[in-house]
């Protein structure tokens, strides 16, 4: 168990770190749009046979009024590599033949790093809020934001940070589709 950082430990929540709370990245337009083929591949891969995702006639008779897509599906559109940019995978392996396939790959909309000497990163949890289903033809816009940074102390008394990045996903009408939050521990 962790507890609130004690006053006698060296604080990791410096004014510079605290200043990152609320810092947002640019609003990024994902490459492409919500299309039937991506929807088919995604729902088959997650193993969801819901006809609301593929049967137009049935979907039009539901309260959603047409074919819908899982909101979380659009969260993976943000990491697409744009075809007008250098192939990041080829570059990653040129730079490091032992690349893990993602380590050197740049992502659009990334936030500036939190200025801390704590470098070890552990996943602390995820949150998901859903407000509206994407529809076929939707463009997806997303924005990252440091929504929270907290300090805790471990059993050894050392302070560590819990950093939460919130990502909001909207469509071309500025309608909020869903929000994801990922918290990571920095030790």
């Amino acid at each position: 168990m962790t507890q609130e950082a004690q006053h006698d430990t060296q604080s990791a929540l410096t004014p510079e770190v605290r200043a990152m709370i609320g810092v947002a990245g640019e609003v990024v337009e994902s490459w492409g749009y919500v299309d039937e083929e991506y929807l088919r591949r995604f729902t088959q891969a997650v193993m969801d046979p819901d006809p609301r995702y593929w049967d137009k006639d049935f979907a039009e008779g539901t309260r959603f009024g047409g074919v819908i897509a899982p909101p979380i599906m659009v969260s993976y559109m943000v990491s697409r590599h744009r075809p007008d940019q250098e192939d990041p995978i080829t570059r990653a392996f040129q730079e490091n033949p032992e690349s893990d396939g993602i380590g050197s790959v740049e992502r659009p909309g990334a936030l500036p790093p939190v200025p801390t000497d704590l470098v070890r990163v552990l996943n602390a949890g995820n949150e998901l809020e859903i407000y509206q289903y994407p529809n076929i033809g939707d463009k997806i816009y997303f924005q990252n934001r440091y929504s929270d940074i907290r300090e805790r102390s471990g059993r050894d008394g050392r302070a560590f940070l819990i950093i939460t990045v919130e990502t909001s996903y909207k469509n071309q009408n500025d309608a909020l589709l869903c929000i994801t939050r990922q918290s990571s521990i920095r030790r």
Binding site: V46, P70, E129
Partner: peptide, 26 residues
Amino acid sequence: KQSVVPQYLKDWTLPGGWPWKARFEH
């Protein structure tokens, strides 16, 4: 795994409910 979560909640709340929010750790 985290993509199964909203599917699971959607299926249980269909056709007129809503899978509002979830939190989980890996």
